[in-house]
Design a protein around this nucleic acid. Structure first.
Lengths: 251, 251
DNA sequence: TTTCAATGGACTATTTTTAGTCCACTGGCT
DNA sequence: AGCCAGTGGACTAAAAATAGTCCATTGAAA
């Protein structure tokens, strides 16, 4: 059987860096855009700021931005009041290139279902400022009124917004990361018209619970909401597990 | 008030790399040792293997190992059947150098209390192999019989072992990371003789629940167990919050 | 109309990191 | 006794990344 020995701990003997700085920077910026943290048309921070925030030299950042520009994700304007702007129309992710890795699907979904319900619960328990409540409602409205073709980034932004209210930056970052992983997985399966109304009702239920301070309901609402993506992705893992139907929730 | 604008998302605009490869490699190896994933006297993987696992060139890994050797964390033997060994007696962390950052304390504790109870719950729900059960019991026994001066690494190893049973590598990695952060925090406060017996009883309760498949009890037991560290660290954040007593649980 | 500050663009020297190669040492095996 | 495979040790050339500096462009403000 040649079992993996417990003596060799995988938990920390993993890559310190994932590729070179250039690739990591591209990846991070792409995630930020695809998660809707910068919406279409938004201006990115100036290069000098952004390079500092990303912990990378300006030269490297510029290489990454040049790639994104070439690929059509951002547009650049020079001069004062210029800057780098997220393209109004994002290029279609070519997706479907590679098959789903079942281990990655299971891991991402499991991790997500640990993080997001907990975040919702913490958000409900937190004392939210008026501004935070407003922001949550804004984000909710934004996703509710989004047209289908850009539902996913708005939806992702809503989920990250919830996580940010939980008060733990690490948790928010982890939620954003795992959501980006799930977006990548979703990009690889055929597009199904999602049931936006159902999803929006679930979002509303989550927000209601958070604003009401009902942490258990918030957790439960988020758990329910995540089931959609879970079975959607599992449904495309092919045979080996029994599937009853193909669900249509978008996230 | 100059509020942080929600328009600038902090969740993903964070450093892509934390220092240079050399520093990150030292950090990772130190964590691995301090978490007890390599116990005192254990042999590390050969440099060629380790450098690949860490995603770093052998030259960089060797620089890091040289530092650890100089600091007394590892010892090196040349020749066949030689290798790099974790020192039998680890140097005392000089600690107490810097004060606790309340935000870091809160973040680490909050994140941890999301991850570990969930991991315990998942482990209880998982179908564990005989080998996994044995490993869990071994690790439990190892921490229970550890002398006080090296209780912390054994304890950390137990917690990571639980997380690894949850079946999500991401979750296990996150647990290991956050535990390392908490270890660093604990290094900065005066040493209090921990109540090892109490801690061991809690460990036993967690293991019992997992082996019994009682996921709710496992979650609850882990939550209770984490309260000790939480109030211990909060107790050292100084005034500003009311503290009733100084708890003594070691983790 | 002119100015000028904020922005992207470009270049250089230096440092870090890598991949590859060969050397040196050691202890079990033949 | 000698071999030799597996280990750490050391060096080189190349590539990647950084810090620093200066240039080019722009549009609002004076």
């Amino acid at each position: 059987m040649d079992q993996v020995p417990f003596e060799t701990p995988a938990s920390l003997l993993r890559p310190v860096r994932h590729g070179n700085a250039f690739e990591e920077t591209i990846e991070r910026l792409l995630q930020t855009i695809k998660l809707g943290l910068f919406a279409a048309g938004d201006k990115l921070p100036p290069e000098r700021e952004l390079s500092e925030q990303l912990g990378v030299s300006r030269a490297t950042l510029r290489e990454a931005l040049a790639e994104l520009q070439k690929a059509g994700y951002v547009e650049v304007q020079r001069g004062r009041y210029g800057g780098t702007y997220v393209a109004l129309k994002l290029p279609a992710g070519r997706g479907k290139g590679t098959a789903l890795d079942p281990a990655e699907v299971d891991d991402a979904l499991a991790f997500r279902s640990v993080l997001e319900p907990a975040a919702a619960s913490l958000a409900a328990r937190a004392k939210l400022s008026a501004r935070e409540r407003r922001h949550l409602l804004d984000t909710l409205a934004d996703v509710a009124t989004a047209p289908a073709e850009l539902y996913r980034p708005k939806d992702a932004r809503f989920h990250v917004a919830v996580a940010e209210l939980a008060g733990s930056p690490s948790l928010a970052a982890a939620v954003a990361d795992v959501r980006a992983r799930i977006n990548d997985l979703l990009d690889r399966i055929p597009f199904l018209e999602p049931n936006l109304e159902h999803s929006n009702r679930q979002h509303q239920r989550i927000v209601d619970a958070i604003l009401r301070g009902d942490d258990e309901e918030a957790r439960q609402a988020m758990e329910d909401h995540l089931l959609g993506t879970a079975s959607l992705l599992h449904g495309f893992l092919g045979p080996g597990e029994e599937r009853s139907e193909i669900p249509t929730q978008p996230n």
